[in-house]
């Protein structure tokens, strides 16, 4: 009886999970079909395998957009780490007054919608001639991700045993040694997780990319959005472009899945 119930629940679980995953699976399957097969009703499961859609995507010039996305994401992630690691370190290990105020400030900027700052940012960039500039976009992504990074890093730092830090201090380790040689190696997996999460959020960002870039610095999400012009058949080629666009982040997310929850909940959940 109990065994039977277990089998039923397990089967139901798998059916639901596969149902939820179906749109992604279908996107990947469709990306290897010809347009005619992709639009066939009823859907064809025996369609011939082809790579022509991927060739078509690159023919339509997706590469520069992918490169822009990569630059904005990697650049902003690097900047976030440089700013967040020392800040989080100070907020968790070093004695500092008004820690709570600073932390509250960081968490509140995360809750300030982009709507609050987009207009001035747009006009400042415009007057500086920095619209459609990948550095400017990366800079804004860094600001966007900074609070998450500080909070997440802090939750990793606070797991470092204080005795190790104190032992280092007694041995006369300076600030730099203390941070770089003693603490950082311990929290390295945490740093990697923070980096992956910042990368994911930057790579997927659409609103700022749409408003602040036009051509030179255009990233993948707005490119994808303008990919469909509604003429002719496009399901297969759209699926191929989408598959390429989501691949880096899905890979990164699968690698970091254990740390993902902590980052998403800003360190509130372990």
């Amino acid at each position: 009886m109990r065994r039977l119930r277990n089998v039923i629940i397990t089967t139901a679980t798998w059916v639901l999970v596969l149902l939820f995953f179906f749109p992604i699976a279908w996107m990947i399957v469709t990306s290897f079909k010809s347009e005619v097969d992709a639009a066939a009703i009823p859907p064809r499961f025996d369609a011939a395998f082809t790579l022509e859609q991927y060739a078509a995507v690159f023919d339509r010039g997706m590469t520069p957009y992918l490169v822009n996305s990569l630059m904005a994401s990697l650049g902003s992630t690097a900047l976030v780490l440089v700013l967040a690691v020392p800040a989080a370190y100070a907020l968790s290990i070093r004695p500092i007054r008004r820690v709570r105020d600073v932390l509250f400030f960081f968490i509140s900027t995360r809750f300030l919608p982009v709507a609050a700052s987009i207009l001035p940012v747009f006009f400042i960039l415009k007057s500086l001639g920095a619209l459609d500039n990948i550095t400017a976009l990366g800079l804004l992504y860094a600001v966007m991700n900074l609070p998450i990074a500080v909070w997440m890093m802090r939750s990793f730092f606070s797991e470092v045993p204080l005795e190790i830090v104190e032992a280092g201090q007694i041995d006369g380790a300076g600030l730099r040694t203390e941070l770089l040689r003693i603490v950082l190696p311990i929290v390295l997996p945490g740093v990697a997780a923070v980096a992956l999460i910042c990368f994911i959020f930057s790579w997927n960002e659409y609103f700022l990319a749409t408003i602040l870039t036009t051509f030179e610095a255009r990233t993948t999400p707005p490119f994808l959005a303008s990919f469909v012009d509604g003429r002719g058949q496009f399901l297969a080629v759209l699926s191929a472009a989408s598959t390429l666009a989501v691949l880096p982040v899905i890979t990164a997310g699968w690698i970091a899945q254990k740390q993902l929850v902590r980052g998403l909940a800003m360190g509130a959940v372990k």
Partner: peptide, 10 residues
């Protein structure tokens, strides 16, 4: 977890 990772535009 994958649906959350998929680029919202895609």
């Amino acid at each position: 977890i994958t649906p959350f990772l998929v680029m919202p535009a895609a």
